[in-house]
């Protein structure tokens, strides 16, 4: 698919993120906007998926390990056709399939429940192992936060993926440099991330996480890597696309007011 179409979907995803978080009155816009281009490239170009058959055994899987970016995932899934776009308005409401963090038992297209940070890469390892046992060629994508790399379990999982040569695991680190309490380097630095992942035996790429060509090229390159898992450290901007949200930790977990939403949507027109 042409990257123009991906770009259109990425912009529409950002609009949906703003409107659904505003409607819900809570949620995580900052990290949803930073991951939007990566998710758009995956769902509208790279991934082998079929919205009419969400449990297809041969599908590529995606685990949103930074599950608080659920609005970005939901926007991608709805626009791709996994469920009606109108349902995005139900985000975080009682009885909704769109839980505050992704729930695989409720929503079609969610491959793994997530939200408690640090757990997604382990599940991806299990899915990749299962694929190997079953002689399937699907890929398992994981989106982690950079702050999430402070969790010990991430490094247990990193060791495991390299030890078992899981070359069908492709992880992204959404490197927006901010976490709830501020800069990741002030709170508890996980840097240098490239060297850490390299030393754990991973194939490492560093890209601009808002450049669709770079994202697509990095995925293609990761698929060429044999016998090693791949991580793509994507430099991003928290709140990308909305001027007053960009690079502000305060927009990690707060919803815009109606007037702010209108401004954001006009910027994303």
């Amino acid at each position: 698919m042409s990257l123009d179409v991906v770009a259109e979907n990425a912009k529409e995803m950002r609009r949906k993120i703003i409107s659904m978080v505003t409607q819900a009155g809570s949620g995580h816009p900052g990290g949803s906007l930073s991951a939007a281009d990566i998710l758009a490239e995956l769902y509208f170009d790279a991934m082998r998926i079929d919205p009419s058959n969400p449990k297809w055994e041969d599908r590529d899987r995606l685990i949103l390990s930074k599950g608080h970016a659920a609005p970005a995932l939901y926007a991608a899934l709805a626009l791709k056709g996994f469920f009606p776009v109108e349902e995005l308005d139900n985000l975080r409401k009682l009885g909704s399939r769109l839980q505050g963090h992704p729930d695989m038992k409720k929503l079609p297209g969610v491959d793994m429940s997530s939200g408690s940070l640090g757990q997604g890469l382990s599940a991806a390892n299990g899915m990749a192992l299962a694929g190997r046992l079953d002689n399937k060629d699907y890929y398992v994508y994981v989106i982690m936060g950079d702050g999430e790399n402070q969790e010990g379990q991430v490094w247990e999982a990193a060791m495991f993926a390299a030890h078992y040569r899981l070359d069908h695991v492709i992880a992204f680190v959404d490197h927006n440099r901010l976490q709830i309490d501020g800069l990741i380097t002030d709170v508890m630095s996980p840097e240098p991330l490239e060297e850490k992942w390299q030393s754990f035996g991973w194939h490492v790429q560093k890209i601009d996480g808002h450049n669709l060509e770079q994202i697509a090229a990095a995925i293609a390159a990761a698929k060429q890597v044999k016998e090693r898992p791949s991580v793509i450290i994507a430099d991003t901007i928290k709140g990308k696309g909305v001027s007053f949200m960009e690079n502000q930790a305060s927009w990690h977990g707060s919803a815009p007011k109606q007037q702010q939403a209108e401004q954001a949507l006009s910027e994303l027109a």
């Binding site: 997604g120 390892n125 299962a130 379990q153 495991f160």
Partner: peptide, 20 residues
């Protein structure tokens, strides 16, 4: 999995999600 019980549970979850 080595001495890494948290990852062990997560790997098992991923295996189970794929029918194991």
């Amino acid at each position: 999995v080595g001495i890494a019980e948290q990852n062990m549970i997560g790997v098992a979850a991923g295996l189970a999600a794929c029918g194991k």
